[in-house]
Design a protein around this nucleic acid. Structure first.
Lengths: 207, 207
DNA sequence: CTATAGTTTCAGTACCTTTTGAAACTTAAG
DNA sequence: CTTAAGTTTCAAAAGGTACTGAAACTATAG
């Protein structure tokens, strides 16, 4: 993977010829090593994001800010990830909207910096809350709606194999599940680290 | 949503003219109502699937089999969802591979039928296990790999603001989180309904 | 006010995923 | 063996999503 020329590894085009580094301050061996590590992490995080329905670049930007652990500006992100200004800007904004990165003004600096939340538990908590709201709640609502539509109209026939009965049962089963899942999600919200570790402790003890 | 002509609602092209129903046995009012309900559910489930990185059609097929609650054959699925044979076939296979629907041979029938698992908890359990394996495990492995790469080489300088130190801390934080999450997922596997409800009871009591 | 540094937006393009439809394949029965 | 019913595969096309680059915009300093 990092076979050929480890010097200019910067996450994008590995097959590229090692450009003579236009205005490069050289970078020590340790710095190179660190960069490789960070890039490995970023790449993997991007891949995972994708399979969970999060666009790869957004996940990568977040991974970058998280793993580097210091504020970066738009241009830093662009250069490091080889993406355009527009892309960078949009995704940084989206991440801010999610609340898992923060804008940061430096005294005497014109441009803005961005910083990831530090606490992984808190980040997860925020994401869980938001996805619950956006994705589980609507399903629950739809189920309720379906149950109403199936209400008392055809309830007379209680024959065990009646298709209506079956669908009723399925809806009920799903509702049951979603309600409980929702509750669990809710426990996470606002509890962040403390709450979560408590949850986890309880869980692990119970088994 | 179900404004105009509720008769031929079959989930696909709502703007289409109501074709005189080529070989239709007419369908009672109750049957129509049931179909509407099922379609509503299917549609929503498909949408949700998409935001979780599952292709919409696959989610819809699963929703169909689940909500109808009786075995359907490939052609049933094709007709009901207005999708091609190839598409239907591929996705049915994929769902079987996941293990959340089952193949079913009917005596004296040539073609195959498919049936959803009934127990929502069991389905979730299966999905959770598989996604853990496919998506969390690789991340954990990458983190370990990163930690090794960052091993003892540059460990000398323990200055609090050393970039290497920061990245080390971030990796550790993420590892911590992923390990625990993994554990929780593991509790679900093979425990299905009984295990899960137990988990949930424990959780809800603790808060 | 103008000049400058930086950010956001967006139409067009590139890329990737999904779907189709038809051909190849499989299986069961005669 | 042949025929028929059904299933799977896959190249090509459609459909979507994400990215770019440049123009429009905003804010700050002089």
């Amino acid at each position: 993977m990092n076979a050929t020329n480890p010097v200019l590894t910067d996450l994008a085009d590995e097959a590229e010829v090692a450009v003579p580094a236009v205005k490069a301050k050289p970078m020590t061996a340790v710095e190179q090593r660190l960069r490789e590590v960070q890039d490995t992490f970023i790449r993997r995080w991007g891949e995972m994001g994708q399979t969970w329905g999060i666009n790869r670049t957004m996940a990568e930007i977040h991974a970058l800010l998280f793993i580097v652990g210091m504020p970066l500006c738009t241009d830093d992100v662009m250069e490091r990830l080889h993406i355009s200004r527009g892309n960078s800007s949009m995704n940084l904004r989206a991440l801010c909207d999610w609340g898992i990165i923060k804008r940061l003004h430096k005294r005497g600096e014109r441009r803005e910096f961005f910083e990831s939340l530090t606490d992984v538990w808190e980040m997860f908590s925020i994401i869980a809350a938001e996805r619950k709201r956006r994705e589980m709640d609507p399903v629950l609502e739809t189920i309720k709606q379906c149950q109403e539509m199936l209400g008392e109209q055809a309830l007379g026939k209680a024959a065990k194999l009646d298709p209506v009965q079956i669908t009723r049962q399925r809806l009920a089963g799903m509702e049951d599940f979603m309600k409980v899942t929702n509750k669990v999600f809710q426990q996470f919200v606002g509890n962040a680290k403390s709450g979560l570790t408590r949850v986890v402790k309880v869980l692990l003890k119970a088994f």
